[in-house]
Design a protein around this nucleic acid. Structure first.
Length: 947
RNA sequence: GGGCGGUUAGCUCAGCGGUAGAGCGACGGUUUUACACGCCGUUGGUCGGGGGUUCGAUCCCCUCACCGCCCA
C-alpha cells in the first residue's frame, strides 16, 4: 500500500541514487538500436557559481527535452561541465587569502597562486553540479568537463595557434575597457552602464594668438583634459567656423592642440565644442584616428595619473617656457590679474602625479576655477561604465592586447542563421543575433590575470612574437627567424637548442578570456582536437538552450568557433547546434529582476526543499511561454506541489481498487464506454504533449498533461469508475482495472520529463505493490505511442458529464443541501438517452446525489428543470424549490440563448457575410443556431410549466 | 536617439481572425470508500486609448499612452 502522503524530500535523493546506480543518464542509455543522436551541451555554469533561478529554469527545460528524447529512444547525450571564470575565481581566491591574512598573490608568485586556485576548486568549486543533480538534471555526469581540463586546454592552444596562423588573431594597440581594480582588460559584455549623477564642467580653452578669445568645452571628466589633443566642433557650426584650423592652448598643461571640424561634435549638446582625448574615450579615439591626433595616455594601470616620465604627455607642451599662451589683456577690456594659464612642469607633477581619478578631478577643476577658466558647472546625469565584477568605474585604456578578428569569423556564422542551418526559437531573436554580428568589433581575448589559459606566445629579445603550441616550437620558430635575418649565428642557435629558450624567449604573461574556451565547448567537450567517436556522433548538437542575455556571450562565439574548426567531409563548416531555444528571464512576483542587492532573490533550492524539485520544475516549465519573462510566485509552486500530491493519491486509489498493469492488455480492445472514453482522452493528451514538446512549447505541454491528469482522469474517470468497482459486472470491473492501471502508467510516462522523481517512484511502487517487475526504470521506458480514439464513447461521456454538472449546478443554486438525495425525472428522452441513462444509472445516482431515476410524460409540478440535448431532466422539489428563483434561472438562460441566436441572425442577415465568409464558418453557425433554437424551446416549455 | 518586447478576470499568465480560458484568490457549500495540498458550485473581463483593414478584430496594420529590456 502506498503511503498516505508523498514525501518529496525523502524520495528525491533516493531516486537520484537509483538513477545513478543503473547509469540511466549515460550517453545512449535506453537508446533503440540504430537510434538517431540527440545531444545538448549545457551552457557551462561558472565554477564559483551556485544555483539560481535562471539556472533552474535553463536546466529544467534542457532536462525536459533530454528526458523526452531519451524516452523516445534517441541516442541522447546531455554534456555537463563548468567554466573556469577567470576574474570571478581569481577574485574569490584572493579574497579568501586576504581573509586568512596570507600574503597576496604577487608576493607568492604565479605558480603558488595557481596551486591555491586549484586547491580552492577541489574544495569548494562547482557546488553547482550537486545542485543541478538535486534538481534532477539528467546529464551524463561521468563526462563532466571543465574548461581548464587538460583536454580542453589542449583545444584552446590548438585554436589559438591555428587562428593566429590564419591571420585571425593578432596583437594590437587599441582602447580596451580597463578594470583598474583587477588591472585587466575586460569585455564590453562585462561592462555595466550605471546611471550616475555627475556634472558638466564648462572649461574655457584660450586660443593661440587670439588674446581674450576662448573656446568653451563641456566635459563630465575634467581630469582627462590632461590628455586632450584637440577640440572638435561640428563642420556646419557657424559659431566656431573661424576657429577651425587654429590652435588652443591646453590650460594647466600648455599643450598646443588643434581645433578640428568633425561631425562627432553635436552642436546641440553642451557648448557644441568638445574636447578630444583619444587615449581615454572610445569616441575620441575614432576622432583621433580621423585627424591623426596624438594619443596621450595619462593614467597608469591603477588609473592613477601618470605624468613623471610620460614622454607623450610632455611633448609639445613647451613646459618650462613660462606663460606660453598667457593672455594679453584684451583691448579695451579691464585689466585682468596677469596669471598664467599654465603650470610649470614641477608644479604639474607635484600636484597631479600619482593621484587617483577622483582626486585629480578636484585638483583640475579647482585650478581651472582659480584661473577663471571654469565657465560654469551644470548638474548632469549620465551613464558611467562599471565592471560587473569589481563594480569600479571602467577606464578606456590604451594597451597592447590580443584580438580575434570577429568580423571575419562572423560571416559564416551569420550566413548559417540566414539560411536556416541554425534556427532561433522564438524566431525574433535572430534579429538580435544579426544586429550584434553585423556590428561586431574585434574581440579582445587577452586578460591580465593568472587564472586561465596562458597565451601561447613568446617574445624574442627584440620583442618579436612567436605564437606556437609550446616553448620548444616557439624556440624553433625563433631560431629560424633570427638565423634567416642573421641576427644570431649558428653557434648561438646551437646553444639555444641545447640549453633551451630560458633567458632568450619570454612567454606572454596574459591569459585568455574565459569565453575563448567556452566558445569551443560544443566540440572541445566531445574530445576535439582528438577525432573521438563522441565527436563524430554528437556534433552538431541538437539544440542550445539559453537566456537571451547570453546570445552574445555564447551563442555567437560558439557559432563562430564551431564553424571555423568543424568541417564536414566536403570541408564545409558545420554549425554547433541546429536550434537555439531562447528562454525567458525569471523575475520576482512584481516583475523585478532578481538580484542580491534588491534582496528579492528566490532560492530554487529552498523551493525544492519546501515543495519538491518536481513542483519547481513543473512550475518553471508551465510558465515557460515563449517570448515572455517569468514572474515567479511561490503560490504557483505550491499549486504544482498539490498536483504532485493529487497524482500520488490517484495512484493510491487505483491501487486500493486492485488496478494492476496487465501485460497483455490491449486498451484498444476495451468495450466499456468509460474505458474507451479515457483511452480517447489519453490519445489526445499524448498527441498534445508530444507535439508541444517537439515545438519547444513547454507551457502547452505542461498544461495538456495537467489538464488530462487532473480534469479528465481524476475528476471524471476515477469518479465514474467508482460505481463500476463497487458494481457486479465482473468483466467490466476487470477491464476497468486494467485500463485504469494502463492509463496511470501512461500518465507517469507523460509527466516524467517534468516531474521525474514522483513518477519514477510511482513507477516502481505501483509495480512492487502488485508483485510485478518493470522492464526498466521509467527514465528509460518508451514514450507513449499514438492511441486510438472512440468518438461515440466521447459523445456519451461528454453527455454524462454535462448532465451531472447541470444537476449539481441547479442543486447548488436552489440551495438543496448537499446531503439531500432527490429524485430525478426524465421527460422526452430519446431511445439513445434512455439507454445511456440505464448504462450510467449508478454514476448519476452517485455523482449527482440523486435518490432515484424515473421517466415520465410530463414534468412533475414545482420542479427545477434542466435541458440536456433533447431531454428535460426534472428535479421535483416540492416545498424545497423557490419557484420564483427557478423562474429567474430559466429566464436568464432564455435571455442568453436569445442573445446568441440574435447574434447569429444578424450575421446571416448581412449579405456581405453570406457572400464572403468561409463556408465552414457559415455552416458552423447554422448548426449552432439550430442547437440554440431547440434548446430555447425546451427552456421555454420548462418556464411555461412553472406557470 | 535606434531596436525589441509587454499592456487580457483582484493577482500571475495562456490564447491570437468567427466577441475569451487556466491557476491562485474571493464567495457559498461540503468530512460522499484516493486526496481539505481535497471535492462541488458561484462570482469576476468595453482583451491599455484612438484610428484603420475586414462580412467580422482581443488577434492584422497605423498611432498614442504607460511599463520593461537591449544598443548608442
Amino acid at each position: 500500500m502506498l503511503e498516505k502522503t508523498y514525501e518529496a524530500a525523502a524520495v528525491e535523493p533516493r531516486i537520484s541514487a537509483a538513477w545513478d546506480e543503473v547509469g540511466a543518464f549515460r550517453a545512449g542509455a535506453g537508446a533503440k538500436p540504430g537510434a538517431a543522436p540527440y545531444s545538448i551541451v549545457i551552457p557551462p555554469p561558472n565554477v564559483t557559481g551556485s544555483l539560481h533561478m535562471g539556472h533552474a529554469l535553463n536546466n529544467t527545460l534542457q532536462d525536459v527535452l533530454v528526458r523526452f528524447e531519451r524516452m523516445r529512444g534517441k541516442d541522447v547525450l546531455w554534456q555537463p561541465g563548468m567554466d573556469h571564470a577567470g576574474i570571478a575565481t581569481q577574485m574569490v581566491v584572493e579574497r579568501q587569502m586576504m581573509q586568512r591574512q596570507e600574503p597576496g598573490r604577487r608576493e607568492i608568485g604565479r605558480a603558488a597562486f595557481l596551486e591555491k586556485v586549484w586547491t580552492w576548486k577541489a574544495e569548494s568549486g562547482g557546488t553547482i553540479a550537486a545542485q543541478l543533480k538535486r534538481l534532477g538534471a539528467s546529464c551524463d555526469w561521468s563526462r563532466e568537463r571543465f574548461t581548464m581540463d587538460e583536454g580542453l586546454s589542449e583545444a584552446v592552444l590548438k585554436v589559438f595557434v591555428q587562428l593566429h596562423r590564419d591571420g585571425l588573431i593578432y596583437r594590437d594597440k587599441r582602447l580596451v575597457n580597463w578594470d583598474p581594480h583587477f588591472e585587466t582588460a575586460i569585455s564590453d559584455l562585462e561592462v555595466l552602464q550605471v546611471e550616475v549623477k555627475g556634472h558638466f564642467w564648462h572649461f574655457k580653452y584660450p586660443i593661440e594668438g587670439m588674446p581674450g578669445r576662448f573656446i568653451t568645452v563641456a566635459t563630465t571628466r575634467p581630469e582627462t583634459m590632461l590628455g586632450d589633443t584637440a577640440v572638435a566642433v561640428h563642420p556646419d557650426d557657424e559659431r566656431y567656423a573661424d576657429l577651425v584650423g587654429k590652435f588652443a592652448i591646453l590650460p594647466l598643461v600648455g599643450r598646443r592642440i588643434p581645433i578640428v571640424a568633425d561631425e562627432y561634435s553635436d552642436p546641440e549638446k553642451g557648448t557644441g565644442a568638445v574636447k578630444i582625448t583619444p587615449a581615454h574615450d572610445f569616441n575620441d579615439f575614432e576622432v583621433g584616428k580621423r585627424h591623426g591626433l596624438a594619443m596621450i595616455n595619462i593614467l597608469d594601470r591603477k588609473a592613477h595619473v601618470a605624468l613623471s616620465g610620460n614622454e607623450a604627455f610632455w611633448a609639445d607642451t613647451g613646459h618650462g617656457a613660462e606663460l606660453s599662451g598667457a593672455p594679453e589683456p584684451a583691448e579695451g577690456a579691464e585689466a585682468e590679474t596677469p596669471v598664467s594659464y599654465v603650470f610649470g612642469a614641477e608644479m604639474l607633477e607635484a600636484l597631479l602625479h600619482g593621484k587617483a581619478r577622483e582626486a585629480a578631478r578636484k585638483i583640475v577643476v579647482e585650478a581651472m576655477e582659480r584661473r577663471g577658466l571654469l565657465a560654469k558647472v551644470e548638474p548632469n546625469t549620465h551613464m558611467v561604465p562599471h565592471g560587473d565584477r569589481s563594480n569600479v568605474v571602467i577606464e578606456p585604456f590604451l594597451t597592447d592586447q590580443w584580438y580575434v578578428n570577429a568580423g571575419e569569423l562572423a560571416k559564416p556564422a551569420l550566413a548559417a542563421v540566414r539560411d536556416g542551418r541554425t534556427s532561433f526559437v522564438p524566431k525574433n531573436w535572430e534579429n538580435t543575433y544579426y544586429q550584434w554580428m553585423e556590428n561586431i568589433q574585434p574581440w579582445c581575448v587577452s586578460r591580465q590575470l593568472w587564472w586561465g589559459h596562458q597565451i601561447p606566445a613568446w617574445y624574442g629579445p627584440d620583442g618579436e612574437v612567436f605564437v606556437a603550441h609550446d616553448e620548444a616550437e616557439a624556440l624553433d620558430a625563433a631560431i629560424h627567424h633570427y638565423l634567416t635575418r642573421a641576427e644570431i649565428d649558428a653557434a648561438k642557435a646551437a646553444d639555444l637548442r641545447v640549453n633551451g629558450a630560458a633567458g632568450f624567449l619570454t612567454r606572454d604573461e596574459d591569459v585568455l578570456d574565459t569565453w575563448f574556451s567556452s566558445a569551443l565547448w560544443p566540440f572541445s567537450t566531445l574530445g576535439w582536437p582528438e577525432q573521438t567517436p563522441e565527436l563524430a556522433r554528437y556534433y552538431p548538437t541538437s539544440v542550445l538552450v539559453t537566456g537571451f542575455d547570453i546570445i552574445f556571450f555564447w551563442v555567437a562565439r560558439m557559432m563562430m568557433m564551431g564553424m571555423h574548426f568543424m568541417k564536414d567531409a566536403d570541408g564545409n563548416p558545420v554549425v554547433p547546434f541546429k536550434d537555439v531555444y531562447i528562454h525567458a528571464l525569471v523575475r520576482d512576483e512584481k516583475g523585478q529582476k532578481m538580484s542580491k542587492s534588491k534582496g528579492n532573490v528566490i532560492d530554487p533550492l529552498e523551493l525544492c526543499d519546501e515543495f519538491g524539485a518536481d513542483a519547481l520544475r513543473f512550475t518553471l516549465a508551465a510558465m515557460a511561454a515563449q517570448g515572455r519573462d517569468i514572474k515567479l510566485a511561490k503560490a504557483r509552486v505550491a499549486g504544482y506541489r498539490n498536483f504532485a500530491t493529487k497524482l500520488w493519491n490517484a495512484a493510491r486509489f487505483a491501487e486500493m481498487n486492485g488496478c494492476v498493469s496487465v501485460s497483455d492488455f490491449e486498451p484498444a480492445a476495451a468495450k466499456g464506454t468509460l474505458n474507451r472514453w479515457i483511452a480517447t482522452e489519453l490519445a489526445r493528451a499524448v498527441a498534445g504533449v508530444t507535439e508541444a514538446l517537439e515545438a519547444y512549447r513547454f507551457n502547452d505541454a505542461a498544461a495538456a498533461a495537467y489538464r488530462f491528469v487532473w480534469n479528465s482522469f481524476c475528476d471524471w474517470y476515477l469518479e465514474l469508475a467508482k460505481p463500476i468497482f463497487m458494481g457486479e459486472d465482473q468483466a467490466l470491473k476487470d477491464e476497468t482495472r486494467a485500463t485504469c492501471a494502463h492509463v496511470l502508467d501512461e500518465i507517469l510516462k507523460l509527466l516524467h520529463p517534468f516531474m521525474p522523481f514522483i513518477t519514477e517512484e510511482l513507477w516502481a511502487k505501483t509495480a512492487a505493490e502488485a508483485g510485478l517487475t518493470r522492464g526498466a526504470m521509467l527514465v528509460t521506458t518508451e514514450w507513449p505511442g499514438v492511441g486510438i480514439t472512440h468518438d461515440e464513447a466521447a459523445d456519451e461521456i461528454d453527455w454524462l458529464v454535462g448532465l451531472i454538472t447541470e444537476v449539481r449546478s441547479v442543486r447548488s443554486e436552489m440551495n438543496v443541501p448537499a446531503a439531500a438525495q432527490i429524485p430525478l425525472v426524465v421527460v422526452g428522452a430519446s431511445a439513445r438517452t434512455t439507454a445511456w441513462m440505464a448504462t450510467h444509472e449508478a454514476a448519476i445516482l452517485r455523482l449527482a446525489r440523486v435518490a432515484s431515476i424515473a421517466s415520465a410524460d410530463q414534468a412533475p409540478a414545482a420542479s427545477a428543470q434542466i435541458v440536456v440535448g433533447e431531454a428535460t431532466f426534472c428535479l421535483p422539489l416540492e416545498g424545497v424549490i423557490d419557484v420564483g428563483a427557478e423562474r429567474t434561472r430559466l429566464s436568464k438562460e432564455v435571455v442568453k440563448l436569445e442573445g446568441e441566436i440574435g447574434r447569429i441572425d444578424k450575421m446571416f442577415a448581412n449579405p456581405q457575410f453570406m457572400a464572403k465568409a468561409k463556408e465552414e464558418v457559415v455552416e458552423e453557425n447554422r448548426e449552432k443556431r439550430e442547437e440554440y433554437v431547440a434548446r430555447i424551446a425546451k427552456v421555454r416549455e420548462a418556464l411555461a410549466r412553472l406557470g
